[in-house]
């Protein structure tokens, strides 16, 4: 199995995920990994004071569809770059500031493919995967709004699923 897609409540181990990608082939010459963390405030939220500490972040997803969409995004990346393997892990449930929330890792022959593919995967994940964040701060709950800047980043890669 060269690709791995997981939507899980459990945390993940960066070193272990890196090792899996590195060990896929002796021809792997570059591994790029990205790890997203829960920030302690959300500047995009309008009602909650952006300077107020977040007590937690809750991730909801559409079971079955999220995994299928992530697999589809990986297939799209594979049509653009020659990849030995990809790992995408997204956590769901309730997370605290500084928790790991998302992992994207790519194993390729050369570094540019690896950097570009990892960036592509994150840009598409953020705009297409069926995941939703709810912030709880100062006892108030609020679903976060999508950011136009994320759509712009995904659009820069060309075709989009929603067009």
């Amino acid at each position: 199995m060269t690709d791995l897609v997981c939507v899980q409540t459990d945390d993940f181990d960066l070193a272990g995920e890196y090792r899996r990608l590195r060990d896929l082939s002796s021809r792997v010459g570059a591994v790029v990994t990205f790890c997203g963390l829960v920030r302690d405030f959300e500047s995009s939220s309008s009602e909650i004071d952006p300077d107020a500490p977040i007590n937690n972040l809750t991730l909801q997803h559409y079971p079955g569809m999220t995994e299928a969409l992530l697999a589809e995004i990986i297939e799209q990346a594979k049509t653009r770059w020659s990849l030995y393997g990809v790992t995408v892990i997204h956590r769901i449930g309730t997370l605290a500031p500084n928790d790991q929330i998302v992992f994207v890792g790519v194993a390729t022959e050369h570094r540019k493919q690896a950097f570009d593919a990892a960036q592509f995967l994150m840009d598409y994940l953020k705009t297409q995967a069926t995941l939703w964040k709810k912030v709880t701060a100062k006892g108030k709950e609020q679903w976060l709004d999508a950011k136009g800047s994320d759509d712009d980043a995904a659009a820069e890669w060309g075709e989009s699923r929603n067009d």
């Binding site: 569809m65 997204h90 953020k126 297409q128 995967a129 069926t130 999508a146 994320d150």
Partner: peptide
Amino acid sequence: LAFLPPVTGG
């Protein structure tokens, strides 16, 4: 049938 608001994962 599912109704999906703009996604905010990542």
